[in-house]
Write a protein that binds this DNA or RNA. Sequence first.
DNA 1: ACGCCGGCTGAACGAGTGGTTAGCATGGTG
DNA 2: CACCATGCTAACCACTCGTTCAGCCGGCGT
Lengths: 228, 228
Amino acid sequence: MVCMRSDKRSVPLSDLTARARIRDAAIERFARDGFGAGLRTVAGDVGVSPALVLHHFGSKDRLRQACDEHVLAQIRTAKSESIVDAGTRSFLEHFATAERYSTILGYVLRSLLDGGPLARAFVQHMIDDAEQYVGAAVSAGLAVPSRDERARSRYLTLSALGAMMLSITLDPPEDLSNLTGFMRRFFAEITLPTLELYTEGFLTTRRMLDDYLLYVGDPPGENAAQHS
Amino acid sequence: MVCMRSDKRSVPLSDLTARARIRDAAIERFARDGFGAGLRTVAGDVGVSPALVLHHFGSKDRLRQACDEHVLAQIRTAKSESIVDAGTRSFLEHFATAERYSTILGYVLRSLLDGGPLARAFVQHMIDDAEQYVGAAVSAGLAVPSRDERARSRYLTLSALGAMMLSITLDPPEDLSNLTGFMRRFFAEITLPTLELYTEGFLTTRRMLDDYLLYVGDPPGENAAQHS
DNA sequence: ACGCCGGCTGAACGAGTGGTTAGCATGGTG
DNA sequence: CACCATGCTAACCACTCGTTCAGCCGGCGT
């Protein structure tokens, strides 16, 4: 009968730091090697025994839950402290290219590849954020309105995040210190095509769009009832 | 000293079909459960012993190599038999929504998530294909020319594939028979935003693009030397 | 009919996994 | 000083993994 972590007051400082050190090491290790990394590896990173990791977190799933929560909290603070300036993918680019978020970014990317609940929460977070920001841009006359704003925000977010993770999966940096540089290179590569596509479009004729709009009865937009 | 598979003439039919049956079962199992699936599971699917799998393929890595080669060959025939009609992502949509390719598509998606050599080959294949097709569209006056056609093709391909795999990762279908339906739903969801973005663009002003073009000396396009 | 031979298997191995437990050392407290 | 709680660990458990190997067994040639 091991003591459960029901109260943290009995071990005011050292236990918390040990927990935090193990959690941070787990985040880094998971970000580096994926969630298949063993508890022994994580324990070895902090220089403790594998049993201590289980002693603090109970199981590997709960360790990952703790990592997820901490990463999500870090993302929230990162978002609150990053004032969205001009540009569509401002928070994503800020978050992905900031050096101090490289570990968390790697963890998020692993989570996206794995498809856990953190991935869903993160993506939904980004979609909601994009919808709000795109709505503001439309209201300000900076962006073309869409017949289904929600679908567009979802599409833009999925495309941006998906391209990011696919690009990293195809050519993974060997360690996390190169991740920020990788992301900077990635954004540098996609900036021109993105801006071109966003301002000049891709097709020269409206035929395909009009055909589609004619083909479907009405687009499934709930906030754009009548159009065209 | 087991006999190596140096010659296949000694066992003209039954060995080949056994190999093929194991390989196909492995492709299906890998597509369903990912590459972490065990050899015992694959062997159980065909009703043979795990040792036979190793007997035929030598190791799990070589089994996966065989799967990769077969899938790539299937993709090549799928591509050759699918006449690219109108539309940008024609082959991708045809391949992803065709019922008979659902297993291969699932394998490819797993491979993209895993980042193996097949993933790189497949993506490069798609990028080259997109570049050729986009080039034809530009020549025909159907598409707006880009300052860096290669970068644009790469960006469009990474975005489309990435959105696809991210969407599937976030909400995975329980079995492969639902995968085709999932892909159809996915394409139905992204068609409107894609067509809108491709024909109407997203931004209303050229400011961001012009600022970027002014900021960088010249875009790294090798086939579009002088511009603007 | 006999022997060989090759496809195939059952059983095991060694490594590695998440998880459990008994116990050690240490430091604060009566 | 004695005691006890506590952070921590070594050892172990059951399990899965890829892989190996001795050998079965049925068909085929002689």
